[in-house]
Design a protein around this nucleic acid. Structure first.
Length: 476
DNA sequence: ATGTAC
């Protein structure tokens, strides 16, 4: 019923005009192939988002979009607080500030060739991964609020990494506006042993080789060259973020009912930005962002320690750290006027263009590095934000390959052991916490990441800089 | 995503 309403709007850009209770159109970024295979539920969920109070311009779906809890994963929606706009826990997702960090190792492929197995064993031993994985680091209840206020800055102050890392993290490694008092004791308790752990699902730590460079200028600006060895870390806010989402989804269902906000789907629970629960969720969610930033900072430190054990010449520097499950207050131009909006990005990466004031000086000319994690057996990409993207999608783009198949479908089709063997034949070492987890994450369960990234570039949301191919994957 | 169904 939605697919037949699609109108091609531009290169890799489609629109569904508002109908029913939609206040704004749906805009989907995808090529012909991706749009043909797009799950009808993505349109339904994007339409539900388009019907929420205070939504501005459009309800967006990225090329990697798929069904999610309330909002589609790969969905972007911006809300105006002065027009009754809402904030939604489902619009951020359960894994608050799930994101990707990319490190340059200072090594080239020649320097690690032949040592892959040793490096893989070392990383797997040092990086806690899997369901309920525990860290050697303990954050006591006394320190918890400092961590939730300080983010990666807190981690650096505890001895995990360097101050220089912070300028290559969104928000300089510390999200302002965090309000630990609005995070439940239960959520904090769940995090005590989990700072510096990978978690499970699609989370991983990967050692990668730069296999292609698409723009010499941008690669130079990002310090990348062919055959450089990089590390990509994908994880989020673990138990704490999950508990914040659980706590506030329940509160928001109640508030939405009291405020007379009609919800097409109860999973889309939300509260007016200016309501008490709306403000509390925002403060708690910012604390969740800091938790994820601290988590990735500690994991980077563990990675540095592992590399230092084998390679005295390794020098791991942070290229960038992006979150792809957030709601952020940003200034965007609407009808010629600057407006402060609450931009939800769920399974969508911020992709700010050149000259944006929030970028560090040495990235002003290039635009923001955009990190796209692919699947174990395929490739990941580094892109750069564009000026065009700022008006096309509030400076947002895809976040990964995007699931094409549910986890249960994937476990019926593949066995973890076979996936590991198949990837070994391609020269990729997988260190997995669970065979079932590996089956769920089989490359075949995902869309084609190359198609997703190409559609993103054709639409103008970001520019391709480099392709990374996996050598070692420590899987949650 | 998640102490993978408090």
């Amino acid at each position: 019923m939605f697919a037949e309403k699609l109108k091609k709007r531009g290169e890799a850009q489609w629109e569904i005009a508002p109908f029913g209770k939609m206040r704004v159109p749906i805009i989907i970024f995808a090529d012909e192939g991706l749009i043909r295979d797009m799950d009808e539920q993505v349109y339904q969920q994007a339409a539900n988002v388009a019907a929420l109070p205070g939504i501005v311009k459009a309800s967006y779906a990225m090329p990697d979009a798929h069904w999610g809890y309330g909002f589609p994963i790969g969905g972007v929606g911006a809300f105006d607080p002065d027009a009754g706009g809402v904030i939604s826990a489902g619009g951020v997702g359960f894994d608050i500030s799930c994101g990707v960090r990319s490190l340059h190792t200072g090594l080239t492929y020649d320097q690690i060739k032949g040592n892959e197995k040793e490096l893989a064993d070392l990383l797997a031993r040092r990086i806690p991964a899997g369901v309920g994985s525990e860290s050697k680091l303990r954050v006591t209840s006394l320190e918890m609020d400092d961590m939730l206020q300080g983010g990666a800055l807190w981690a650096v102050e505890q001895g995990y990494g360097h101050r220089a890392d912070l300028r290559r993290i969104e928000e300089n490694g510390r999200m302002l506006g965090a309000e630990p008092r609005y995070v439940s004791d239960h959520a904090k308790q769940r995090q005590e042993k989990e700072v510096g752990t990978l978690g499970s699902g699609n989370h991983y730590l990967e050692v990668q080789r730069v296999a292609a460079v698409y723009s010499d200028d941008l690669a130079k600006a990002f310090g990348l060259a062919l055959n450089d060895i990089m590390v990509m870390i994908h994880c989020g806010s673990r138990g704490l973020g999950h508990q914040i989402a659980t706590d506030y989804l329940a509160k928001m269902i109640k508030v939405a009912r009291e405020e007379g906000i009609e919800l097409a789907d109860k999973d889309l629970a939300c509260a007016p930005i200016k309501s008490e629960v709306g403000k509390q969720y925002y403060g708690a969610m910012c604390a969740g962002i800091n938790c994820a930033l601290a988590n990735r900072q500690v994991l980077m430190h563990l990675t540095r320690e592992a590399f230092a054990q084998i390679y005295s010449r390794a020098n791991l520097t942070l290229l960038y750290d992006v979150s792809h499950n957030t709601c952020k207050v940003e200034e965007h131009e609407i009808d010629g006027h600057k407006k402060k909006l609450y931009v939800h990005r769920k399974g969508a990466t911020r992709a700010f263009g050149p000259g944006h004031p929030s970028l560090p000086e040495d990235l002003q000319a290039s635009g923001q590095p955009v990190l796209i994690g692919g699947t174990m057996g395929t490739a990941s990409f580094i892109l750069a934000g564009t000026t065009e993207g700022m008006t096309l999608s509030f400076g947002s783009c895809c976040h990964g390959a995007g699931r094409a198949m549910s986890r249960s479908q994937a476990t019926k089709r593949w066995h973890g052991k076979d996936v590991v063997m198949h990837l070994a034949q391609k020269g990729i070492i997988i260190k997995g916490a669970s065979p079932r987890g590996i089956a769920e994450e089989a490359p075949g369960a995902y869309k084609d990441v190359t198609a997703v990234v190409n559609a993103t570039e054709i639409a103008g949301l970001a520019r391709k800089v480099a392709r990374l191919e996996p050598l070692i994957c420590v899987k949650g």
